[in-house]
């Protein structure tokens, strides 16, 4: 049970959140212009690093806001949280 610091509500139990996978994967501007391969990458391929991962969470049982976190998937340590639309912070 992670303790996730929601940027709007503060630290809350993981059970209050919904996971949204990799962050910063934008919906393609013009899907029709993409090849099948490029479209497949958007649909099905997400990074899966062992280490720092920028990911999306939604505080579904709280403020219902989506936000992003940088978490280390090897340790589950959350290094940063930031609001949707903000750039990924640089983690030293």
């Amino acid at each position: 049970m992670l303790l996730i610091p929601c940027p709007w509500c503060g630290p809350r139990d993981e059970a209050e959140f919904h996971y949204g996978g990799q962050a910063h994967v934008a919906y393609p501007e013009d899907p029709a212009a993409l090849s099948d391969e490029e479209w497949a990458r958007y649909l099905f391929f997400r990074d899966n690093p062992k280490g720092l991962f920028a990911e999306r969470w939604s505080h579904t049982a709280g403020c219902r806001r989506w936000f992003n976190a940088v978490r280390d998937t090897a340790t589950n340590e959350i290094h940063a949280v930031y609001r949707a639309g903000e750039p990924r912070p640089v983690i030293a």
């Binding site: 993981e14 996971y19 996978g21 899966n48 998937t73 090897a74």
Partner: peptide
């Protein structure tokens, strides 16, 4: 567990 992780340990809930 909902979130990606390489920890060989899940959440207790």
């Amino acid at each position: 567990d909902a979130a990606n992780s390489y920890r060989q340990r899940g959440a207790f809930h």
